[in-house]
Every structure is written in structure tokens, then in C-alpha cells.
Amino acid sequence: MAKSRKNGDELQRARLARLLSDPATYFADARRQAHEQAKRLLAARLDEPGEVSPGRS
């Protein structure tokens, strides 16, 4: 089953409002989350070094 994400206009509107009201906090939170996700994805990739898609090798 393909994974779908809730990322519609309402969510975008809310994100935009948050960005405009306090950009420094918005990007500080975003930076922290981006690092957490990058760390997670990297750890998963290093733990299971399976075959990568030919298009991504």
C-alpha cells in the first residue's frame, strides 16, 4: 500500500502563517526536525545496506 501524506492546502496555509508570524522559530524547529529525520534515514540506510535502485546508485 502506497503511503499518503496529509499535505493539502489547509496545511500549507497553516505553515505559511507560522512562517510569516515568526520565521526564526519556524526555521529553528524545521532545522531540528530535518536533522532528526536525516539522522533516522541515514541510520536505517547504514543498518540495511540493501540494493539501491539503479536510478539512485
Binding site: 524545521a30 530535518a34 529525520q37 536525516a38 541515514l42
Partner: peptide, 10 residues
Amino acid sequence: AEDESARAQL
């Protein structure tokens, strides 16, 4: 790799 991946996402 972590920094670059985070930056691309950001």
C-alpha cells in the same frame, strides 16, 4: 551526509 540531507529537506 546528515547535514546535506537535512539541508535539502529544509
